[in-house]
Every structure is written in C-alpha cells, then in structure tokens.
Design a protein around this nucleic acid. Structure first.
Lengths: 252, 252
DNA sequence: CACCTACTATCACTGGATGATAAGTTTTAT
DNA sequence: ATAAAACTTATCATCCAGTGATAGTAGGTG
C-alpha cells in the first residue's frame, strides 16, 4: 500500500499514475478498480480517472475480470531493448561467459532500492527456475549487495537505519549490522558470493561493473546450483567474471 | 511533434508524461532535454520536471549522451507478458499454426490508431526481417485493416475523413476511398491478403480473432515471401488460420 | 577567457486535479 | 425473478499542484 510515491507531495499526479501501473505490475491477474484504489491508497474517483487515462493510451487494458497492463508496455520495452547501450554491450560478453563456464550469466542494474535483471544468457543446461528478464529484486538479497556497496556513507546509513524496521517483518534473516558487514567485504573484494541465500542450493557469484571513470553502473553474475558446481569451482571462475565486467565497463 | 495528447485539455500532466516516454520510444539513441521538449512541444521547464520524475522512478535513465528509457520498463513488460491472457492463450496456437504451415505466425491487437504485435512464432526458416514483439504499425497498412473492419460506421467515417489529409503527406499510395473499399471486403470475407504492400515480395494473410460474443479482440496472420510461397499456397492455409483464430477466440 | 548550450532552481499565478456525493450499471445472492 | 451488493461513471466546488517565464549554474568549445 501507499507505495513509493508522494515523497514531499510534488509531482503527485504522475507519481500516482505510476503507482497504479506498478500496482498492476505486482498483481498477477486483472484487478478491479476498487482493488487498485485500495492497494495504492488512492481515492476511487482519482483511481478511475487515472486508469481511464492510461487505458486511453494503451498502457492499461480492461476485460470482464478487471484491469491489467496494456500492450503499449511492449512497445516501450522493445524500444528499451534495442536502444539500451548497457544491455546490448553486455549480451555478447555474457554469451561468451556462459560458453566458457557453462553457467547462466546475467546482468542487472539498480533502480531505486531494487535491482532489475536486464540481460541473461543461459548456461549449457538451464536451471529449473531462472529469473526472467525484467525481474525486480530488493538490493539487500544476494548479489544486490554489490550495488549497495557503491552507495556513499550518508545514503547507506539512512538505508540501514530503516532496514531493521522494514525488513524484519518481511522475514529477512540478516539484520542491518550483518548487511553492513557484508557490504564492507564487497567493497574490499569487488564481488559477492551468495550461498543458498535466496533458495536452498542456489549459488551465485556477482561482480561489479564499473565504467571508465570507475563509477558502478551494473553488476554481472554467474548462477548455478550446489549439485552442479562446488563453491570452489564457482570461485575459480572469478577471473573470467572479472574480465567480463571489465570488458563491459570499457565499452560504455 | 505535439503527438497524441492534449485532446480537450484534461489529464494534461499524465498525457504529457506519456508523450515524453513515447518520444523516447520513437527515438533511437538518447535524447537531450531540449530535444524532448521540442519534439513533444512542451516547455523546457515542464519537460525537465517530467523527465526527472520519470527518472526518479526508473522509467527514464540518463547518461552522458542524454536521456533514454529506463529499466523499469522491462519490469512492466515482464508483468504484461506473464499476465496477458490473450498472448498466453495465443502462443501455443501460433506454435501449432507455424508447425503445420512452416510459416511465421503472429498476433496483434489494436491500440489507438495503431496495432501492436504481441506474440510471434517463427516458421521453419525465419525470414530475414521479422517484426519484433512490441512493434507498432498504423492500422491502415497490411493486416491492420482487419482491425479497422470492426469499427462502427461513425468512428470509421471520422477516421477516413482525416485520412487523406494526414496520410498523403507520409507517402501512402492508397486514398480514403481505396481503404474503405478494402475494409468493406474484409468485413465480407473475414480476412485480408496483403501482397507486397509494405515491402516488395512480402505476403501476409490476416484473419480476425473474435471472442465468444463475436467482438473483435485481435488478429492473427501468416507472413511469408513471394519466393517461398505463392499467393494460392498462402490462401490454401486459410482454413488453418481461421481455425486458429476460432481456437483463440473461445479460450478467452 | 568569453561564449554557447544544457540543465536546474525559483516563484507567482491559475487552471486542472481532487475527492465527496450521487447516479448509473453490472454482478451476485436469495 | 427480484433485491441487494458491488463496481463503475458522472458531476462539481474547492484549492493546491502543475505551469512556464525568468534567472541562475554547470560544463564544454572555439
């Protein structure tokens, strides 16, 4: 509920419209108007106007069961895919990385306090469950910490001070201090190894991607399972992973 | 310029924001702030506010070269793909259609005065150039006429009365009368055959998709080239195409 | 160093967004 | 079949957020 918007109360209209869109994004299956209103904390009349405006533009569609995202989203996504420098640069490098390691490799970027998977190349034998492109994951789990490690102290402090309150309820095992410790280690090493963190037996090795000026722009990782790959084996791919990250960095 | 928005002057803010997004959608490569302002006909200050709001939310990203669509678009698109009833229902049917015919089959829906490709399954030997998923095409070219054929007279009249003025400039061969004639024929037959209409040697056979109540919800087509398939051969697939359309229709 | 361009910040004004209310419509229950 | 419950659309006075002219700042170029 309430979601991200209305910080300070400026740019309300647009923020609310985006709230509505992301409401539908999170929902699986169509939503009724009143569902959207409740979920996003808006007045029904406001929701109705917003939804209709988005519908007129094709960002939302309506059927008997309710409202859902519309086909124009696909048009935007296509434009993103063909234009985005980072993902187009990264894809061939991920392909090579997956070829040499036999594992699934992927690239994700930060967006707010989440990371978004923008490219993925499957390994020799794809895993039973792969993150789909476009998937959003919070920054505090798994390889997201690589992105957090680039935050300046002030931002990080603010984030961590909120962290315990917000995340304890949603069932995180780690607390703010654990997280800070992990972030510090990532800063030293430049990579992060996640062992059964998100799912039992899931392994991932994540490395930061920096541009020519040294600013963090993304992260790439190799993901596998404990059955297929040992931790040591995975770590042995670190040079390849690091080289891949460097190759992406210089090309943007 | 000016684009779709500001019809009547209501819901301005949101419409303008969407204009900005679609501005970036059309552009290949990043745009400067002033480019966006000029292209969308907005004041620079307004553009700046809008762009920053969209950027805060991840719908737009900025690099040295300018602004472009952001990764959140991918998240929305992923949600659309997994939720959209029509495209998920259609895909297996398109797969079967492509298997039996050996041709590329696709599904598109109407959005405003354009159609959007929402699903595609490649044939045995994919063509050199395929429409990508998310591609927008005006309704008056090729199989789009199948969607136009479902418009009621009043809407169609208004559309056709604008047609000559708007489209003659953008190099269409057909005029409003030609178009009306073609639409009438589609209404009788239920399908449309496009022969070298968009590109020389390109052939496509498009059939309407109606739901249980008989309202048009989409169109499916088979697309091929003159070298690979004769017009008669393509027309011989009409029963399969029609059956596929029916199968989609009843499942939604 | 001066010039140009791109972007950001400020602020008074005003018109569009807002939300309470009510009417209309569809779906569900009895 | 009828009632009722839920969902959606329409109306409108109030007021605040969006607007855009202006000015200021940063970054790059000749």
């Amino acid at each position: 509920m309430g979601s991200t918007a209305t910080s300070g109360n400026q740019g309300r209209t647009l923020d609310r419209a985006l709230d509505v869109l992301e409401c539908l994004e999170r929902s699986r299956g169509p939503m009724r108007l009143s569902d959207i209103a409740r979920e996003s904390g808006l007045h029904v009349a406001t929701t109705q106007r917003t939804v209709n405006q988005l519908m007129r533009r094709g960002y939302i569609q309506q059927d008997r069961l309710g409202y859902s995202l519309g086909p124009v989203i696909l048009s935007l996504a296509h434009a993103f895919v063909v234009n985005d420098r980072l993902s187009t640069v990264a894809t061939p490098i991920l392909t090579e990385l997956s070829a040499t390691t036999g594992l699934t490799s992927s690239l994700f970027v930060q967006s707010g306090e989440e990371r978004i998977l923008v490219a993925r190349v499957d390994g020799a034998e794809p895993m039973r469950y792969q993150f789909p492109i476009g998937r959003r994951v919070p920054l505090d789990v798994g390889g997201g910490k690589v992105l957090l490690s680039a935050w300046d102290e002030e931002e990080l402090d603010r984030y961590l001070s909120r962290y315990d309150q917000i995340r304890l309820a949603s069932g995180r095992v780690q607390n703010a201090d654990d997280l800070r410790e992990q972030i510090v280690r990532v800063r030293e090493l430049g990579y992060y190894l996640a062992d059964s963190e998100r799912e039992l037996g899931a392994l991932s090795l994540t490395h930061r991607v920096q541009d020519a000026e040294g600013v963090l722009v993304a992260a790439i990782n190799l993901v596998t399972t404990a059955e297929k790959t040992s931790v040591d084996q995975l770590l042995s791919f670190l040079p390849e992973l690091s080289r891949g990250a460097g190759a992406i960095g210089v090309r943007i």
